[in-house]
Computed example of a mutant assay.
Amino acid sequence: MNLQLGVRGQAQTIVTSLNTAKAMGSGHLEVFATPAMVALMEQAAVNALNLPAGQSSVGTALNISHTAATPLGAKVSATAELIEIDRRRMVFSVEVYDEVGQIGVGKHERFIIDIDSFLVKAQTRI
């Protein structure tokens, strides 16, 4: 595993009727949903990683603020920067912008996992 502090990942989307608060059940309005913003933050963090075959990462914690509403049709971009590494635990600083300015900010924690053993363990929960 070759991770370095400062590595960055990005993710983008367009606000459509599918990722609004109304569509996702997190509100009644046709604006970019907080759950969609969270998913974009996680996608940016995943995009920062180049893990070896057989490994992946899972999100374990988020502490975010969604600070501005973004309307239908707007472009939204997220950036994640790796700011802390503790063995398999990683912490990212995440920021989200629309075409006008920042709409979200926070920290996101992920853990590196071995895919096969993770899936075996997950199956024991049924």
Results as ranks from 00 to 15, higher is better:
Met1Asn: 01
Asn2Ser: 08
Asn2Cys: 06
Asn2Gln: 09
Leu3Val: 13
Leu5Gln: 03
Gly6Pro: 03
Gly6Tyr: 06
Arg8Thr: 14
Gly9Arg: 14
Gly9Gln: 07
Gln10Ser: 05
Ala11Arg: 08
Gln12Trp: 05
Gln12Ile: 08
Thr13Ile: 07
Ile14Arg: 14
Thr16Cys: 08
Thr16Gln: 03
Ser17Lys: 11
Ser17Met: 06
Asn19Pro: 09
Thr20Ile: 05
Ala21Gly: 08
Lys22Glu: 07
Lys22Tyr: 03
Ala23Thr: 10
Ala23Tyr: 08
Gly27Trp: 02
Leu29Met: 11
Leu29Ser: 10
Glu30His: 04
Val31Phe: 03
Phe32Trp: 09
Thr34Glu: 02
Pro35Leu: 07
Met37Gly: 11
Val38Leu: 15
Ala39His: 00
Leu40Glu: 11
Leu40Cys: 04
Leu40Thr: 00
Met41Asn: 00
Met41Phe: 05
Glu42Gly: 02
Gln43Leu: 13
Gln43Ser: 14
Ala44His: 00
Ala45Pro: 04
Ala45Gly: 12
Ala45Phe: 06
Val46Ser: 06
Val46Pro: 04
Asn47Cys: 08
Ala48Trp: 12
Asn50Ile: 08
Asn50Tyr: 05
Asn50Glu: 12
Leu51Cys: 05
Leu51Val: 00
Ala53Trp: 00
Ser56Cys: 03
Ser56Phe: 01
Ser57Tyr: 04
Ser57Leu: 01
Ser57Phe: 00
Gly59Asn: 01
Gly59Arg: 01
Gly59Asp: 00
Thr60Ile: 09
Thr60Leu: 00
Ile64Asn: 12
Ser65Asn: 09
Thr67Val: 12
Thr67Gln: 15
Ala68Arg: 11
Ala69Cys: 04
Thr70Lys: 10
Thr70Ala: 05
Thr70Leu: 11
Leu72Gly: 00
Val76Pro: 09
Ser77Asp: 12
Ser77Lys: 14
Ala78Phe: 02
Thr79Ile: 14
Thr79Tyr: 05
Ala80Cys: 02
Leu82Asn: 08
Glu84Gln: 13
Glu84Met: 10
Arg87Gly: 00
Arg88Leu: 14
Arg89Thr: 03
Met90Gly: 01
Val91Gln: 12
Val91Asn: 02
Phe92Asn: 02
Val94Glu: 05
Glu95Thr: 10
Glu95Met: 11
Glu95Ser: 06
Val96Asn: 03
Tyr97Lys: 14
Asp98Asn: 14
Glu99Met: 07
Glu99Pro: 07
Val100Thr: 12
Gly101Tyr: 11
Gly101Ile: 04
Gln102Tyr: 03
Gly104Trp: 05
Val105Leu: 15
Gly106Phe: 10
Lys107Tyr: 13
His108Trp: 14
Glu109Cys: 10
Phe111Gln: 09
Phe111Asn: 08
Ile112Met: 10
Ile112Ser: 09
Ile113Glu: 07
Asp114Leu: 13
Asp114Glu: 15
Asp114Tyr: 10
Ile115Tyr: 12
Ile115Pro: 14
Ile115Leu: 15
Asp116Ser: 15
Phe118Pro: 02
Val120Ile: 13
Val120Trp: 12
Lys121Asn: 12
Lys121Leu: 07
Lys121Gln: 15
Ala122Leu: 15
Arg125Phe: 13
Ile126Trp: 09
Ile126Ala: 15
